[in-house]
Amino acid sequence: MNALTRDTNAWRLIGSIDDIPSQGARCVENGETKIAVFRTADDRIFALEDKCPHKNGPLSQGIVHGGCVTCPLHNWVISLETGAATGADDGRTASFPVRLDGRDIYLNLQQGA
């Protein structure tokens, strides 16, 4: 499978940046999988599986600050860019490619690298 076909199949319009509060998140459901789509204060968009690497806490419900989100269950701080836990904690959540086209958000449902 080459990258191009994968892309064309997987990019989905999920809504507009205005649907997500600044420093907030909304979820996208893809069958069994929940994906949290985050918007930072400087209007960058990131998508991670809505599952904390610690004990599956819903990251979409956390506080977004800088390029990170703090998990609502036990305060792990997860990097939005990589899905990796920061600081002393160890673990990584799946991340998904997103891109902005004007104000439209496209999400690639194939898990990112």
Partner: peptide, 24 residues
């Protein structure tokens, strides 16, 4: 309202781009 609804819902089968989208 946005707090309580998903932004978009897709079925198990990956459908063609932009189909099945429920914009917020």
């Amino acid at each position: 309202k946005h707090e309580f609804k998903p932004l978009a819902v897709f079925g198990e089968e990956a459908a063609p781009a932009t189909a099945h989208v429920e914009p917020a």
